[in-house]
Write a protein that binds this DNA or RNA. Structure first.
Length: 778
RNA sequence: UGGGGGAUAGUUUAAUCGGCAGAACACCUGACUCUGGAUCAGGCAGUUGGGGUUCGAAUCCCUGUCCCCCAGCCA
């Protein structure tokens, strides 16, 4: 069992809910097939990890499979190098596509045949407008497009032209194949989307076999359908494209066919996530390559020392939703720490050494001390020997000439514990006379303090790390920090680019660092915790002469953070003053206002409903937006129901039916609504029961009277029957009753709900609450 | 500006039919500690504004505001 298994998903995200529902309903006969469809034109980054975890995760959880498909429909940017890098990264993250490795380029012939079919069906045509022309004819978001002069070419001519496009008779850009969509569509994507373009380019897999290439919007849905994908999950910016997705498959496939769902892509603070920008950082040498440990690429994170398990844990913690969001970098770092905490052995390293001489330790002596690799709270064991001698090094920052309040490290005249070893006392501070810099500490050690806990007399000290001078291993340590100085580098000031916000201190190379002897033969890729510093990994740049360590992530340091007064993680936060909200009186719709201006009859109704029926403007407005609704309202009143009740029900419930109905009539008549209102007015049914009745009416299940009779809503419960129900409900929830009695009175609503449900809505909630209070306070 | 999507603690998210606003990260207190780490205990903090329906609204109705996406022969 891994750590991941312990973090149980207590609720499903909306996509998993859809998958679960489709399994339940048998839509795909229980099959679940997802896919991760990268284009091989760049390296994968942490944002892709979210998508990979989603797609492969769903497949695993629901007993399905996830395909790895390269969406390679653009010969000009794609390359085998990327294919290999992507496969390596997905595998490294711990996912397995089994034998389901696919390439859209393998479907080229099929795409082509389908395209001919669309032409023959009169659903696609060859357009000979140039790029600029197409743009012109497409219109804008507010103006409809116009048909291209080539839109009505005969089918035979389209077919001929399209075949000659394939045969290579035309130069790039001469013609395109377009879908016959809807030039007036509000969704710009549907204004005759391009399906094929001519590109005389060599494709990294198909070579020069083709000179026409399909567009994403056309190739993607067909690829999904060919592979039998059930749930095609992509990011939010493709929401508009779903219309083409559906258009394509509705024309070429039968249900059950794949369907597309969209979720919000990941944004992380202090980094960028667009392939274009990452490519720029690499090509313009702002970083050392795709796998620079500062990069948010999977390759970069791997080199940095992040673990697949840590990244997966992160993905689980951030969840999946449709809200655009920016995740704080701490969430990622914390997931990595949580993973590393249990798997990285603790060792000692001194990054900025300060020499210490133990004046009472014989110069010719040395000893080997046993040191645990793991702290008490980690359920692992193992030790190594560390050498101690007269001269050693400690961390410069573990000594202070003028210690601040609360200092538990070394200071003149005071003691500190050397981790795994003795207490030492600082007797003398040697400084460089020229600079005043501390160059050496002369200390005495307490030979009796080995393995003994600090006593009451001996003040509590930090156990600091150290290395013996004669056995210290010099290494290079690379400390990494955030790549950018601002949380959102995509948001730039006038005249600047994201590159103006690069953090000049994103890497700090320390070549004076010393590590303990046990690390002398450390292997590339092994991870350690340098006690009190952070987690580190041996980098591939290491040589036989010198090891190189990357800092994966540091350790929180509450003391230093507090001293510095830095409030970590929210230093940029401003106290945003809440604007006093404008008080808007009333809420009259402009649209209906216009309708009444245009139609005096409506305006008169509006006025008279207020004057003679006593409706408020807010009640009168929604029912006087169209003659149809007015007529419905007046017809309902003829039953003798009160205007107020009918108006409220129309406003809150019936208007939705008018809006949503597909065709023809409402499922009930105005007279039915009037009858319902009368039942409410007379107190014959409770409002709770009225809701039930209305729901039945809306479902077309008869008149109010019939429904009341059928459901027995006219029967009333005696007080003693109700009391019994109340007691039963309370008896089932003893914990909640106790909570209520100890002050959590908001539980009354929950109790009420329970009782109301038990009565099937027949009870009066006010009476229920009265009885509940009596019982609860008894 | 037309269309599409979105808004719940500082952040990411949960809340079944309208019925307990819950968690994680961050932050603050304390305990413990041979890591100022980890762990444990406690705390601060929220439904985008206004109005309505209801015994009861994050959820339903009306009306504002803000954010994102779409006018590539990229994906």
């Amino acid at each position: 069992m891994t750590e991941l298994d312990f973090e149980r998903r207590e609720s499903m995200d909306f996509i998993r809910e859809i998958v679960a529902r489709d399994i339940q309903s048998g839509r795909y006969h229980g099959r679940v097939v997802t896919r991760f469809p990268p284009e091989p034109n760049g390296y994968l980054h942490i944002g892709h990890a979210k998508s990979i975890a989603l797609n492969f995760g769903i497949a695993e959880e629901f007993g399905g499979v996830c395909h790895l498909r390269f969406d390679d429909t653009n010969p000009e940017t794609e390359d085998m190098e990327y294919v290999e890098a992507i496969m390596r990264d997905v595998r490294w993250l711990g996912y397995d596509w089994q034998d389901k490795l696919f390439f859209a380029s393998d479907y080229y012939e099929q795409f082509y045949q389908f395209a001919e079919q669309l032409i023959v069906d009169g659903k696609a045509y060859v357009d000979s407008l140039d790029e600029e022309g197409i743009r012109q004819y497409r219109g804008t978001v507010t103006e409809p497009g116009r048909p291209s002069p080539y839109r009505d070419r005969p089918i035979e001519e389209n077919l001929d032209l399209f075949r000659r496009m394939r045969a290579g008779e035309f130069p790039d850009g001469a013609h395109v194949l377009r879908a016959k969509g809807d030039l007036a569509a509000a969704n710009m994507k549907m204004r005759d989307p391009v399906l094929y373009r001519i590109r005389h380019a060599t494709h990294y897999r198909t070579g020069d076999d083709w000179c026409i290439y399909p567009m994403y919007d056309y190739a993607h849905p067909i690829s999904d359908a060919i592979e039998g994908v059930t749930h095609s999950i992509c990011t939010l910016e493709f929401e508009n494209n779903r219309a083409i997705y559906d258009w394509t498959l509705d024309n070429l496939y039968e249900e059950p066919r794949p369907h597309q769902y969209e979720f919000a892509r990941l944004n992380l603070d202090y980094t960028v996530m667009s392939k274009r920008k990452l490519l720029q950082l690499v090509e313009e040498n702002y970083v050392a390559g795709w796998d620079d440990p500062r990069m948010p690429t999977i390759a970069g994170l791997r080199r940095r020392g992040y673990t697949p398990e840590g990244i997966r844990l992160f993905c689980k913690r951030i969840g999946v939703d449709k809200t655009n969001s920016r995740v704080q970098i701490e969430v990622l770092e914390n997931a990595i720490r949580d993973d590393l905490n249990a798997r990285a052995p603790r060792v000692m390293a001194v990054l900025r050494p300060l020499k210490v001489t133990l004046t009472n330790y014989p110069a010719d002596r040395s000893e080997w001390l046993e040191a645990d690799y793991w702290p008490r709270d980690i359920d692992k064991s193992g030790t190594r020997q560390v050498p101690l001698a007269r001269e050693l090094y400690i961390e410069r920052s573990d000594f202070s000439q003028n210690p601040p309040e609360g200092w538990t490290r070394l200071a003149p005249g005071s003691e500190v514990r050397l981790r795994h070893a003795y207490f030492i006392r600082c007797d003398e501070v040697v400084t460089d006379p020229a600079t005043g810099e501390v160059v050496e500490l002369r200390c005495s050690y307490d030979p009796d303090s080995l393995g003994k806990p600090s006593t009451a007399e001996r003040r509590r000290s930090t156990a600091i790390q150290w290395v013996a001078a004669n056995h210290a291993v010099p290494v290079e340590v690379r400390l990494y920090d955030r790549l950018f100085t601002v949380a959102n580098p995509d948001e730039v000031e006038e005249g600047k680019t994201f590159k103006d916000y690069l953090n000049p201190k994103s890497i700090d190379v320390i070549d004076t660092a010393l590590v303990e002897l046990s690390l002398a033969q450390a292997e590339v890729g092994s991870r350690y915790q340098f006690v009190r510093h952070g987690y580190f990994i041996v980098d591939g740049d290491s040589t036989a002469q010198k090891l190189v360590f990357n800092r994966i992530v540091d350790l929180p340091d509450a003391f230093t953070a507090k001293l510095a007064g830095v409030v970590k993680g929210r230093e940029a936060r401003q106290e945003t003053e809440k604007q006093p909200s404008e008080v808007v009186v009333g809420s009259i719709s402009e649209e209906r206002e216009r309708a009444r201006t245009a139609d005096v009859w409506l305006a008169e109704k509006y006025a008279s409903f207020m004057a003679t029926l006593g409706l408020t403007p807010e009640q009168a407005d929604p029912i006087t937006g169209s003659r149809e609704v007015v007529a419905f309202f007046e017809a309902a009143l003829e039953t003798g129901a009160s205007a107020r009740t009918v108006a409220n029900w129309i406003n809150n419930e019936v208007l939705r039916l008018f809006r949503d109905r597909r065709d023809g009539d409402l499922p009930f008549s105005a007279a039915d609504l009037g009858e319902l209102a009368k039942l409410i007015d007379s107190g014959a049914v409770t409002t709770a029961a009225a809701k039930t009745i209305y729901t039945e009416m809306a479902a077309g299940n008869g008149s109010p009277q019939q429904i009341v009779h059928r459901l027995g809503l006219d029967q009333t419960l005696s007080e003693s029957e109700l009391t019994t129900l109340v007691q039963q409900v309370l008896a089932k929830l003893p914990d909640k009753v106790a909570e209520y009695r100890s002050g959590k009175v908001s539980l009354l609503g929950m109790f009420t709900g329970q009782v109301m449900r038990a009565t099937g809505g027949k009870a009066d909630p006010r009476q229920v609450q009265e009885l509940l209070r009596r019982q609860l306070e008894a």
